Amino acid sequence: MDILLTPFEVSFVARALVAGAFAAVLCACIGTWVVLRGLAFFGDAMSHGMLPGVAIASILGGNLMLGAALSALVMSIGVVWTSREAKLSQDVSIGLQFIGMLALGVVIVSHSESFAVDLTSFLFGDVLGVRRDDVLIIGIAALVTAIACWILHRPFVALAFDEQKATTLGMRPHWAHLAMLALTALATVASFQIVGTLLVFGLLIGPPATVTLVARTIPAIMAGAALLGVTQIYAGLLISWYAETAAGATIALLSASTFFVSLLVKRTVYRVRSSNSNENSSH
């Protein structure tokens, strides 16, 4: 039993667990809608699009999370504006913003040799370096997101499954879509210090996608994703402690692996049941 608890007796590991749990709940709430709405590409692009803001904040000695938030805001506005003004699909708009923001970030970083270490932390996270203030910020973000998802539940459901019907019912899907993008940006910004921008995508998409394989209702998917995410944070920290691997990367790898293993199990069970059913019908 001690082997499961000993690492968390260390203060910074325990703090990482609490922060990670908040991030898991935060990502589960909005990640469920990202999966159902098909916004995975936006979540991925957003995680890269924060680089210019973080780079500038680091060079100027400012708050990295504030820099990331400003970049996320600019990118969200850019996606909506480009889609509307250029009459292009959202994927094209997101792709253009993604390329532009990432390239700008790399250009800024290339002029700052001292940013190399900070860039590694930005990309891959430093979950064991989370401070108490970071835990508070992530906790508040998780609470705000959970409340927003509860208030906007009906508009989000209508938007995810039938946008035209949402318009007919007067639910203003355009505003619901903007709110969904904003909450996705919030989750990405608040979580990037836990697992890094390249790995936050796993926490945002992995648990909800895994739970959709077995759950049938949105509340069940959201609750299951939160529970699974917290479990993966705990297991990832535990594995990284004993295996001496990067904590953020371990958590993200565990998230992706869980999905593929679950999918394989589901397909195997389905084939076995189909085979048994065919045998019974033949008799």
Rank of each mutant, 00 (worst) to 15 (best):
M1K: 06
I3P: 01
L4K: 07
L4E: 09
L4S: 08
F8R: 10
V10F: 12
A16L: 07
L17S: 03
G20D: 10
A21L: 07
A24R: 00
A24F: 00
G31T: 08
G31Y: 01
V34D: 02
V35D: 04
L36T: 09
A40V: 15
D44M: 11
M46W: 03
M50S: 07
V54S: 02
A57K: 04
S58E: 12
G61E: 14
G62H: 02
N63W: 10
L64I: 09
G67I: 01
G67P: 02
A68P: 05
L70P: 03
L70F: 07
S71E: 07
S71P: 01
I77Q: 12
V79N: 00
T82S: 13
S83N: 12
R84F: 07
A86R: 14
K87A: 15
L88Y: 08
S89W: 08
S89F: 11
V92P: 01
L104Q: 05
L104F: 12
V106W: 10
H111T: 11
S121A: 13
L123Q: 11
G125K: 01
D126A: 13
L128W: 01
L128N: 11
D134G: 05
A141K: 03
A142E: 00
C149N: 05
W150R: 13
L152Q: 04
L152S: 05
L152T: 02
L152Y: 03
A158S: 15
A160P: 00
E163H: 10
Q164F: 13
Q164K: 13
A166C: 11
T167G: 15
L169N: 12
R172A: 15
P173A: 09
W175R: 12
H177I: 09
A179H: 04
A179V: 09
A179C: 12
M180T: 10
L183Y: 01
T184I: 04
L186V: 13
A190S: 12
S191H: 06
I194V: 15
V195N: 02
L198P: 01
V200C: 07
V200H: 02
G202F: 00
L203M: 14
P207E: 07
V214L: 14
R216E: 15
I218R: 06
P219G: 13
A220K: 07
G224M: 05
L228F: 05
V230L: 06
Q232C: 09
Q232R: 05
L237I: 11
L238Y: 04
S240W: 02
W241K: 03
A243W: 10
G248K: 11
T250V: 14
I251M: 15
A252D: 11
L253Y: 11
L254T: 13
T258A: 14
F260G: 07
V261F: 12
V261H: 06
L263S: 11
L264G: 14
K266V: 06
V269M: 14
S281P: 03
S282P: 00
